[in-house]
Simulated assay, not measured.
Amino acid sequence: MKKVTFAEFGGPDVLQLIDAEDPHAGPGQIRIAVRAAGVNPVDWRLREGQVLGAHPIELPAGVGQDAAGVVDEVGEGVEEVEVGDRVFGEGASTYAEFAVLSAWARMPKGLTFEEAAGYPSVMETALRIIREVGVRSGQTLLVSGASGGVGSAVLQIARDRGITVIGTAGAANQGYLRSLGALATTYGEGWVERVRQLGHVDTALDLAGSGVIRELVELTGDPQKVVSIADLGAPELGVRFSGVAGSMPEALAEAVDLISRGKLHIPVEKSYTLAEAAAAHIDSQAGHTRGRRVLVI
């Protein structure tokens, strides 16, 4: 099979598309014929060797953790899916023609493989940080860098829970944030005052790592009411950096529920082939994403 790997840490140019042996499902796992794989910031952070403490890896290593596809092998003890089922979920080395998943759910009707591949990690992250920041129905949540995959999920989950959201993003994404139910404003000079004009902020999330932790603490009045997934320096200011994953099965189940009720949709901004994995990483690192980026196999 074809598979994207890297043998050394570095820039996008270290990614290689190689011929590799097919993986096989162990106990409690399934193997899928991958139709699409999600591109997440953790993918290129691992490629650069940034987050090895939380995600230790051995080189050479595969890339990717999210995927959608068709079940073609079922491991021992797995009873809830069969060969031929359409599923999405989390595994390892998903930038490949075949991948083993350790958590999965059947795809909701009407969802394409490309769309489904974009949900697992962003849903787990969105649900986790909403829980960690402690925001409740009737309160206002500020989301800095709100137009990407995690932000798109946070905005829609919050709306379903009765939470008001103020989102910051580039000028081109203001309409997109409003379409997801958020009060929107641009980042850049004067953004703190623009946020204040939109309302009182109870809690805040930093999704972009753009150096705004001090301002988020100022707006909420308490570093304990701010959570970041993108600024490794956040703990120096008393702010929680959230990097330990929660329950993927629970995240997938909630995704299926919200999608099935018409309460959640994360668009695919751009698709790439396996051979274009480096280009996908370059675009992901550049930011300014609206929704998700995926590889199509």
Rank of each mutant, 00 (worst) to 15 (best):
G162D: 06
E48A: 15
P249N: 08
G28Q: 05
K109E: 15
S102G: 14
K109R: 14
I229Y: 09
E276A: 11
G64A: 07
I282V: 15
A146E: 07
T220G: 13
Y187M: 02
G134I: 04
H265E: 05
S147K: 11
R106H: 14
A230S: 15
V135E: 07
L219C: 13
L219T: 11
A286P: 01
Y272D: 04
F9M: 07
G75H: 03
P41H: 10
G181E: 08
G62T: 14
T112Q: 03
Q224G: 15
V100I: 11
D13Y: 03
P223H: 11
K3A: 11
F98L: 14
D19R: 14
E76R: 13
L264C: 04
V192P: 00
A99Q: 07
G287T: 05
L15R: 13
A277Y: 02
L127H: 06
P267Q: 04
P27D: 08
L155T: 06
G175D: 15
A146V: 06
D22A: 14
Y272E: 07
G91K: 12
A169R: 04
R292D: 09
D72E: 12
W44K: 03
E58A: 14
D257M: 05
A99L: 10
Q285P: 00
G138Q: 03
D257Q: 13
G11S: 14
A275Y: 00
E276G: 05
Q285L: 01
D222K: 12
D283W: 01
E115V: 14
I157S: 05
S121F: 07
G134F: 05
P60D: 10
E82K: 13
L207P: 09
V87M: 09
G262W: 10
R196P: 03
P120V: 05
S260Y: 08
G11H: 01
A54D: 10
G233P: 00
T168N: 09
P60T: 07
T94N: 10
L205H: 12
R194V: 01
D85R: 01
V51I: 14
Y119C: 00
M1H: 11
L46H: 07
G291S: 10
E48P: 00
S121Q: 14
V81S: 10
T112D: 08
Y119S: 01
L183C: 00
A7T: 11
D160M: 03
R35S: 12
R47K: 12
S121G: 04
V51P: 01
V135Q: 03
S144E: 06
L207I: 09
V143G: 09
D231C: 04
A234T: 05
L258W: 03
P56R: 11
L183F: 01
V135T: 10
Q174M: 15
Q156C: 08
H288N: 13
F241N: 06
A36L: 05
W44F: 15
A230F: 03
T203E: 14
Q174G: 11
T140S: 13
V51Y: 13
R293M: 14
R196W: 01
D19Q: 15
G221M: 07
A184P: 06
H55P: 00
A96F: 11
V268Y: 12
E269K: 06
V83M: 07
L127Y: 09
S284P: 02
T220A: 14
R161P: 02
V239S: 04
R159W: 02
G26L: 05
S144A: 09
V70N: 08
K109F: 02
G75L: 03
G148H: 05
V83C: 09
V143T: 10
